[in-house]
Amino acid sequence: MTLTVGVLSVQGDVYENILSLRSAIDDLGIDANAVEAKTPEEISSLDGLIIPGGESTTIGHLSLANGSMKVLKEKIANGMPILGICAGMIMLSKTASDKVVGQTDQPLLDVLDIKLERNSFGRQKQSFEADVSLDSVGISKFNGVFIRAPSVLEVGSDVDVLAKFDERIVAVKKGNVIGTSFHPELTQDVSLHKYFLSLIK
């Protein structure tokens, strides 16, 4: 059966993730399609989903507006693998606060028991590239692109820490739910997208 892997196409770098998924699918030689998904109907037919980088407030408000937030929560509760990148990880989290502004009341999916700090490394000028390791999923070295990136301040007992950078948690996993602070879709390295695809059955 052909798997359908979606990228939430509300706002952000959707196309970049589709391209990464396509080359990961080619590398693995599996029978899968990478598609954009925006409406509740499109989301409900997916086997896996990436929430891409972007602005989490925008993605949250607009996902509420067309009813996809509710479908997303149901799908994730039923075990659909999901990868949240940067803004996407913020969307998955339980609580998010901004480094400067403090607590925000933005809409969140609340499927990962993590406490998260937005813009944790500073503003755009402080954005950076650095190597990170995700040893527990078999990726020893990955070029992490951090753009106004969040970091995870606290994790719940059932959440695994996949990667840390500068003593801060930058990648987490709980079952089929993965979140990263950095942007694998802005590099040519598709190993993280490949790992995500391996979770989809």
Partner: peptide
């Protein structure tokens, strides 16, 4: 490394569809 093309252009990529 800060201020690379990837980091600078990548910022604009995050604004897409907005």
């Amino acid at each position: 490394v800060r201020g690379t093309s990837t980091v600078k252009r990548g910022f604009a990529h995050m604004l897409k569809n907005g």
